[in-house]
Design a protein around this nucleic acid. Structure first.
Length: 202
DNA sequence: CGGCCGATCAGCT
DNA sequence: GCTGATCGGCCGA
């Protein structure tokens, strides 16, 4: 355990590129009914910049019940269901009413690995528990019921300061899995820890 | 290890 | 109807 203080609202009230860098090394904490903790250290993220970003769910100002959380205040969690079977979690940033967010793509398991393994029975190695956006949501039992949650004031899901990451270990590359996102698909808006075994594409 | 493919469904055209 | 901010099984090298 590294820290008990959850990150404040101001931490999230920045643009998506800044928040992407800031989130690296932080701890995503999931408390359970019995008080036990599942904790993962953020090792890979992607920034989605907003209405001008062709890869964003809010491109062109799109707004629907599905992505409504992107328009909420910074520190809100945007959890959506995709491919008919997976959930992905974003952290909303910037200012309220302006859709921008950072997708959590991979975590390094830190605490509660037994519980994570229960939720991810197919994972052969512990490095496979949270090495993808759908996998980390499964490992931490994050689903649509949590969409729109306030990470600054939620009883069992939030972020803690965690441990910093040396700048020399930080790398960036184009985002993963985008279809035709025009010029935006090649922008290097994915950050990850170079050589880390828990990133989705080492 | 890399590529292909099926699962499964919400949102969009 | 089709596609997707995915995953895991199966195939071949």
């Amino acid at each position: 355990m590294t820290s008990a203080a959850r990150l404040p609202r101001a931490f999230y009230a920045v643009d998506a590129v800044t928040l992407a860098r800031r989130l690296m090394g932080r701890h995503l904490v999931r408390l359970d009914a019995d008080g036990s903790r599942r904790v993962g250290r953020v090792v890979e993220v992607e920034a989605y910049l907003g209405v001008n970003d062709q890869a964003s769910h809010a491109f062109g100002g799109r707004r629907s019940p599905r992505n409504e959380a992107m328009y909420a205040r910074p520190g809100t969690g945007y959890v959506y269901f995709t491919y008919g079977m997976h959930h992905c979690m974003n952290v909303v940033c910037g200012e309220e009413g302006v859709p921008a967010a950072v997708l959590l793509r991979a975590l390094e398991p830190v605490e509660g690995l037994d519980h994570m393994r229960d939720q991810r029975p197919r994972a052969r190695r512990d490095t496979d528990l949270c090495n993808g956006p759908g996998k980390l949501c499964a490992a931490l039992s994050i689903d649509r019921a949590l969409n729109g949650l306030d990470l600054c004031d939620h009883p069992y899901l939030f972020l803690e300061p965690g441990t910093p990451i040396a700048a020399s270990r930080l790398a960036r590359r184009p985002r993963v899995g985008l279809g035709d996102a025009g010029a935006w698909k090649d922008k290097r808006f994915c950050w990850y820890i170079r050589g880390h075994p828990c990133v989705s594409r080492p």
